[in-house]
Structures are given as structure tokens and as C-alpha cells.
Amino acid sequence: MSAIQPSVAQDRSKQASAPVGGSAPNAVGSVGAPIEYILHLADNAVVLGQRNAEWCGHGPILEEDIAMGNVSLDYIGQARLLYQLAATRMGGDATEDKLAYFRDETQFRNYTLLELPHNGPLVGYAVSDRDYATTVVRNFLYGALMVLVWDALEKSPDADLAAIAAKSLKEARYHLHHAADWLVRFGDGTDESHQRAQAAVDHLFPYTEEFWTPSVAEDAAVAAGAGVDVCSLRAAWDAIVNETLSEATLVRPQVRGYVPEGKHGRHSEHLGYLLGEMQGLARAHPGATW
């Protein structure tokens, strides 16, 4: 990985908790992805890592408890690298933990899909048993996107981002494989598993529309030559998804209407609870080192 030069964003250091876009070159003649775009990737990873870790100790079978812990660990690891990269480029007193723990809900740039609890459609303060089909379908839909995103970013002229992408691509391939395997077992397993998988697909599919509506940060990353045009990935994503759904004997639902806007900072009712839990202890001891 190339050395990171002092950030041009030094003057924004006081705003570490409220990062705005902007790019910092990571090496002479190379292109830097906008910080806001790196944060979008990092927030995706931390939020889904946080969600999947909720299964630790509660998995449907011991082997799967361990496997889901692995997936979660990969996401937290990706989040750390991405936040570290963003923090370095922001300069000042920005750190990975300030970005993860001291930004508010409206500053999070993750897809809404990733913050939903592991159950069907319910309001933010509803309580429900976790449903493994929801977990698997989400990991599948998002995993199918991320193998394409990381594959493209691996070739990014932003060498730091490309290095993270190369590592994350290997992990994403495993995540997709793992989720697709279970999705096929559920779809083509028992009546109950089929019904649960179809319900999860119906519930979550509309949230994937958000993948295909580029945000300002995504557009800026493309303009800077360091990002990926998400819309160009849609056909490949469709192919992965349709093939697996068909093998699983599941039906892809028609989607229309509201398109979620998590990556613009407008979230569901669920992210506030997730962040409240995740950030509470760190925020109770500002300035403490752990």
C-alpha cells in the first residue's frame, strides 16, 4: 500500500464527527476516493457486522454460529480498514472509533437494508424472534452486490482503497457462497423453510432498489475516477440473484414504490436502536482509551 500523504482535509479536522465529501490524493499522480464514499463503504460494513454478530451464541447449529461469527468478524475488519483510511485522509483528531462511535444516525451512510433487524417488517420498537431466513437473504442480496463492487474497486487507481477491496473481495466471495448455499437449502428444503425464505425475499427485495440510485458520494467517486458506477453492476447482480433464486425455487418479487435512502443519511426506524446500543458505552466515556 502506498504511503498516505498529509491530508488536504486538515482544515476540517474539527469536524471529524461530521465529515463532508472531498478527496485526498494518496500518492503523487494517483486518485483518491472521496471520504464520504469511503464512509459509505465503512458504514455498510460496521452496520451489517453489528447485526450479524447478534447471532453469536444463538445460532441454529454450532457450526453455523461459528460461521456467522466469521462473517461478522470480516465485516468489522473491513469497517476498521475503511474508517482508518477515512480518518487518515481527514487528518486532525479523526480516528476509526470516532467515526464509528461518535457520528449520529443521520451521518451514517449505510444502505437501509443492512440496518433492519433479523425479522419481517415490524416497527422500530417491536420485539420479535430472530429469523435466520431474513439473515441469510440479506447476506445473499448484499453479498451479491459486494463481490461486484470490490471486484471493480480492486482496480481503482486509489491504491489504498484498491488494497482494501482486494482483501474484502475474497471475504465477500465467501459470504456470498455461504449465504447462497443456505438460501438454496431453505428454498428447496422443507415447506416451512421455503415459506420463510420466500417471505424474507419479499420483505427485503424492495430495499435493494437503493443499490441502483447513486448518491452524491458515489457519483463523486466515479467522477474522481476512483469509484464504481453502481448502475453498471446491475445486470451482473441480476444474473447472480436470478440464478440462485431459481435454484432455490423462489420467486423474485415485483418491486415498485418507495426507494430507501439510507446512504443519503435518511434511515429506517431501526438504525437509531442499533447505534444506541453500539455507541452507548463509548459515548458514556468520551476520551477514554480501550
Binding site: C56, G57, D65, G69, N70, E277, M278, A282, W290
Partner: peptide
């Protein structure tokens, strides 16, 4: 033994400690 420590995964006060704790709880499962 995964449960008492699992109780703190979601609230771990830094990402590094969160990762260490998930890995530890996973080891116990192993």
C-alpha cells in the same frame, strides 16, 4: 460460556475490542 461474553459484543466500546471479543466467543464455540 459464549453467552456471558456475548452479552457485550454489541456494546464493545471500540471496533478493535469488538473484533477481539467476537473472535474469542467464536473460539469458545470451536
Amino acid at each position: 460460556g459464549m453467552l456471558p461474553e456475548g452479552n457485550w459484543i454489541s456494546r464493545a466500546p471500540s471496533l478493535k475490542r469488538k473484533a477481539i471479543l467476537i473472535a474469542k466467543v467464536q473460539d469458545e464455540g470451536g
